[in-house]
Design a protein around this nucleic acid. Structure first.
Length: 852
RNA sequence: GCGGAAGUGGCGAAAUUGGCAGACGCACCAGACUUAGGAUCUGGCGCCGCAAGGCGUAGGGGUUCAAGUCCCCUCUUCCGCACCA
């Protein structure tokens, strides 16, 4: 029983909205029926709808951002059920990762135990929040029955040449004590440690050949209108395709030295090249530095300075400087001698780490040439007669070549193609495409991740663990320490194995996989999570895929969302699935902020959903997260607003429960969707008003779900409807409303509320005598005839300024509107003494009189 | 620097196509009920003005009978990328 305050009247008790009593009661009922939200067999003939929210990391606590994310997805899933779809709405845990190891260090609890405790706690929270998840295909990525398929994919990729090992410069986070992928470096710092600068280390690591799919990943973006343009743009920029050419410049007088290959997108400007610039890390620079101590010193300084700049996260603003090597290279197009320099603005890991410097037509080269007095030539101009052209001029679309030998007069864009072709014919060049995207480094020197299923054999080299020997289990007994290096390397029984090929002693790979591997394909596993023979059954995946709606934070625009697109393409090429893209529609919800700032423990502005739930209930908390802002925008959490939602729900509760006995008494009339038809003639004006607004509201909310997802206005519309019902409360009391109208209004109001306030809606559904599970009831259908207004208000303007608002019949034609407007007193006084030169009448919209 | 999004009352926001700017909610003000109110209900609430009326969607210009919405310029904020040749 609800707690009753000492001096409240019994009547108040009976009508009081008490979510603390209602919500746990319904939660218990739903928990007792695990099949409630389960997807149906594929044979039902219903259209399928795969509704997916990004799975959480089991930190142990849901925050209000989660509540918002899952409130959006849950509302959509419930709506789609009510619209008759077969909905898949699963959930799981992105359960590998560093926090579990940190917790182990701090609290001396094994990562596995910590993780499962957190999962249990968060699952409770999900249940308390009334999230309609189908747990029958729960995925927990740290369990062997999941990660064995990571290993399976890894071996398959290794066999297909998509997973490989190489030594390279990698990002190293000292706080994580592990390597990071390029995608995990944000502004020079670790994505998990905003203040920890990432170091560069030379290590041998495993990579996945995502660059093989660079073109497809890029071009596919054009076929994905259901993804936000922002995300597609970010991915385009990240992939960074540039078409250009490699050109070889021979070093003058050094026949034994290999030619310097530069990458350029502007072959057409080669007659304007006045130097060659090498990255400090370029192999030739290293070679020359061996015999040139001043060069060596200068280059070392440059590298040190770059490192320092990286530490202030100020790499882009570093002053350009360089040093001449004293060598010269030959321009293959005209034989000119170009001095070879080393410059700090040349990136070693983009293109070839060497460029031809064209100061006349590149801003960076211009800045550098000015500083060091290198010649600046003009070889491209908007037209042949341009003499006073300001350099650098970087245009190319409508530009022509000047002072470029036999190429003079060619259009810039055509010359790029022709000159590259010429270079190919002459053997000193090749047309090339360069990408910013690099292969995905997946090795992590950590414990709590998927063991990479590879074996290092002294005889056979690198050997994959045979598929039938998977999974390679992560050892349970391990001491987590803060020392560097892979923790697994300190577990002899893990490391020491026999080579699967020769049977001799060998060593297991001790690195684990990046946790983004886990999340790259988890949503396929949801379609068949208990499969012991394959990652999933293709028929099942092909039924559900692509995901119809994917919902998550924009922070994954590049990381997870590019990796999972890559993984999808790989699985397609392996013949496992038919789709090339994982999700038809992607929705990125805004952040939840507080007092204008991102919530963080250090700022002390974190809002706990538990506290909100305790005070206002789940329904109010969920509904507020949808009401306070459109879901794609940032939401500033204001508790006062939540109180407002709570008041609204109380009003709905009071009104509905007040009339519930009468509605129940109508008995069969309210069953299913069999509402007794309300005859036009027998309807009172109040009936007509209520039904009109009801059907307008149904139409609006239905449109919101299929369109812009502005649930803030959907909820506002429900409030307007409820307020209108409340305004007619006395009329209903007096019997001025047809009981069938009242029944329809309350019944539909409850159904409309179901996606947003599931607990209250379920309670009210029961109270008004609704049968069956609320979320499987058909969504109400708007009746255009009932929704139609017969009288509307039309603004009348004179010279574009509002003069009055007239009530007219909705179907009044233009002549009638004009006549009504002209006969109005206010209008007449406004146009007195003037001549009407023009009358603009927009039927159903307005009348504007132009008078002089 | 480049790319993207945005800028509307005291606050969160609304305004599918150019057509009554500020729906809905918060806060606030007044009143009712009340021993009491951080409950509930009623009314008010962009700014200036007693009013009539005027002004008003970051600022400036333009197109139009009509502009928050379309075009040009400027400013500010947030996000992403950041020497990508």
């Amino acid at each position: 029983m609800p707690e009753i305050e000492s001096n409240e009247t019994p009547r108040a008790e009976a009508t009081r909205y008490n979510p603390a009593e209602i919500e746990p009661r319904w939660q218990a009922r739903w928990d007792a029926d695990p099949a409630l939200y389960a997807a149906e067999p594929h044979s039902t003939g219903k259209p399928k709808f795969y509704c997916l929210e990004m799975l959480p990391y089991p930190s142990g606590q849901l925050h209000v951002g989660h509540v918002r994310n899952y409130a959006i997805g849950d509302a959509l899933a419930r709506f789609m059920w009510m619209r008759g779809y077969n909905v898949l709405h699963p959930m799981g845990w992105d359960a590998f990762g560093l926090p579990a190891e940190n917790a182990a260090l701090k609290n001396n609890v094994p990562p596995r135990e910590w993780t499962f405790q957190n999962i249990a706690a968060m699952k409770q929270q999900f249940a308390r929040l009334g999230m309609a998840f189908d747990w029958s295909n729960e995925v927990t990525t740290c369990l062997p029955d999941y990660y064995r398929w990571n290993q399976w994919f890894f071996v398959k990729m290794f066999e297909a040449g998509l997973a490989y090992r190489k030594k390279s410069k990698v990002n190293w986070c000292p706080s994580c004590a592990t390597v990071l992928a390029n995608e995990q470096v944000v502004a020079g710092c670790c994505w998990r440690h905003e203040n920890t600068l990432v170091e560069q280390r030379d290590l041998t690591q495993w990579f996945l050949r995502i660059t093989k799919y660079a073109d497809e990943l890029l071009d596919g973006l054009n076929t994905m209108p259901g993804w936000p343009e922002k995300v597609r743009t970010m991915q385009r920029n990240w992939i960074g395709r540039s078409e250009g050419a490699h050109l070889d410049f021979h070093v003058a007088g050094e026949a034994d030295t290999p030619a310097i290959t530069v990458f350029t997108t502007r072959v057409d400007t080669i007659f304007g090249a006045t130097s060659i610039q090498l990255a400090p890390e370029h192999p030739l620079v290293k070679q020359w530095a061996l015999t040139d101590t001043s060069l060596a010193t200068a280059v070392d300084e440059m590298i040190a300075q770059q490192k320092a700049a990286r530490e202030t996260a100020d790499l882009g603003n570093i002053d350009k400087h360089g040093v001449s090597t004293g060598k010269q290279a030959v321009n293959p197009f005209n034989g000119e001698m170009l001095p070879i320099w080393v410059a700090n603005y040349i990136l070693a890991d983009y293109g070839t780490g060497a460029i031809m410097s064209v100061p006349g037509h590149d801003e960076r080269d211009f800045e550098f040439a000015q500083k060091y007095g290198l010649p600046i030539k003009r070889v491209v101009a908007p037209n042949l007669d341009t003499n006073d052209l300001q350099l650098p001029y970087t245009g190319e679309d409508e530009a022509v070549l000047v002072d470029s030998g036999e190429w003079t007069g060619e259009a810039s864009l055509e010359a790029q193609e022709k000159m590259a072709r010429y270079a190919e014919q002459q053997g000193f060049g090749k047309r090339t495409t360069t990408y910013r995207l690099k292969d995905w480094g997946v090795s992590r020197q950590r414990y709590w991740g998927t063991p990479i299923p590879m074996i290092h054999c002294p005889n056979d080299g690198i050997v994959a663990v045979p598929l039938d020997q998977l999974p390679v289990l992560l050892p349970e007994k391990i001491e987590i320490t803060q020392e560097g290096g892979s923790p697994l390397s300190k577990v002899p029984e893990f490391v020491n194995v026999l080579c699967p090929r020769c049977g001799g002693p060998a060593r297991r790979e001790t690195d684990t996989m990046d946790t983004f591997v886990d999340s790259s394909w988890y949503f396929y596993r949801y379609t068949d999570a208990h499969n012991d023979n394959a990652p999933f059954d293709s028929a099942k995946a092909n039924y559900w895929f692509p995901i119809d709606q994917y919902i998550g934070g924009v922070e994954h625009a590049i990381l997870h969302l590019i990796y999972s697109r890559f993984w999808t393409k790989v699985m397609r090429d392996f013949g496992l699935i038919a789709n090339s893209e994982p999700a038809t529609r992607l929705f990125t919800q805004g952040m939840v902020i507080k007092d204008g700032a991102k919530m963080s423990k250090s700022k002390g502005n974190v809002v706990s959903p538990d506290a909100m739930i305790e005070k206002y209930g789940v329904d109010a908390t969920r509904m507020y997260s949808l009401f306070a802002a459109p879901p794609d925008r940032d939401l500033d959490w204001q508790e006062e607003g939540l109180a407002g939602i709570s008041r609204f729900l109380s009003r709905v509760y009071r009104l509905t429960t007040k009339f519930a006995p009468a509605i129940r008494a109508l008995g069969a009339q309210v069953q299913g969707d069999e509402i007794a038809p309300v005859e036009f003639a027998g309807r009172t004006p109040v009936d007509a008003d209520l039904l009109r607004l009801l059907h307008q509201t149904i139409a609006k909310i239905t449109a919101d779900f299929s369109g812009r997802w502005h649930f803030n206005t959907s909820i506002a519309a429900i409030m307007i409807l409820a307020n209108e019902v409340g305004a007619h409360e006395a009329a209903i009391d007096r019997g001025e409303v047809n009981p069938a109208t009242m029944a329809e209004v309350f019944r539909s109001l409850t159904l409309l509320l179901a996606p947003f306030a599931p607990f209250l809606a379920a309670e009210l559904w029961q109270q008004i005598g609704g049968e069956g599970v609320l979320f499987r009831q058909p969504w109400p259908v708007a009746d255009e005839n009932l929704a139609r207004e017969n009288e509307i208000e039309i603004p009348v303007q004179v010279n574009g300024k509002l003069v009055t608002v007239l009530k007219v019949l909705a179907d009044a034609d233009e002549e009638a509107l004009k006549a009504t407007a002209l006969s109005d007193e206010k209008v007449a006084s406004r146009i007195a003494g003037k001549t009407i030169v023009k009358v603009i009448v927009v039927k159903g919209k307005l009348v504007n009189l132009v008078a002089r």
